[in-house]
Amino acid sequence: MADNESFVEKVSKTQVWKSIFRHGPPNNARNRAAVVAGNVFLHLHPIKLKKSGVQLGYTWCMGGLTFFIFLALTVTGILLMFYYRPTAEYAYNDIIALREHVPLGIMRELHRWGAHAMVITVWIHMFRVFMTGSYKPPREFNWGVGVILLVLTMLLSFTGYLLPWDQLAIWAITVGSNMAKATPFLGNGGPGAAFAKIGDFALVSDKNDVRFQLLGGRFVGEAALLRFYILHCVFIPVVVAVLIAVHFWRVRKDGGISAPL
């Protein structure tokens, strides 16, 4: 008997294996269910699902890839944080150092190209969800969660754009944040702002409008660098992570990947 057992089967009887996995290798129905239900990561999946939903031709795996890239960006981003200081004095030089002193360094590349890729995959994911009509009931709410994720993905990428502190960075952010100046009522140069006055005192000035709040100053300077750094490394990623959790939960609760009714 024992001679016919495969290597995996033998290993799966050891105490170490049992302590980690609690069940045998997933080669029969019972264990396949156990492995998906018992593993914290795999239990995001249902144990069984419609064949149409697992086909690559249906989902294009674009949501999954977006999530994967998000994780990859988290890892590479944390590694970059070891080297990078968000001050006007150090930022640029730290980026140079990343290029010149870190052996085989492709972390910055991975992070930058990954960020571009995530914007692309999230767009294509949305496109797929639209084309399969998967936003229709009961998935209306999850589509909305998705749209917020889409916006946050682009904001993540946008806030990160400033951090290298080179010409490309500050001028791209200057162009972008100048838009905030034109916000109706809330921006110093926007329609309606001129009306917000008490006597001669303008309530919405370039020292307190939305652009000022975003940049922490009247132009893209060191305060903006710090703000963008914190938004980019802490605030937005945390919100995105929470929303992704909601998004996945709802994919399951709305009946799994959509299929014809």
Partner: peptide
């Protein structure tokens, strides 16, 4: 395609 399949594999 409506048939259910195991998530693993």
């Amino acid at each position: 395609n409506r048939e259910k399949v195991w998530a693993w594999p």
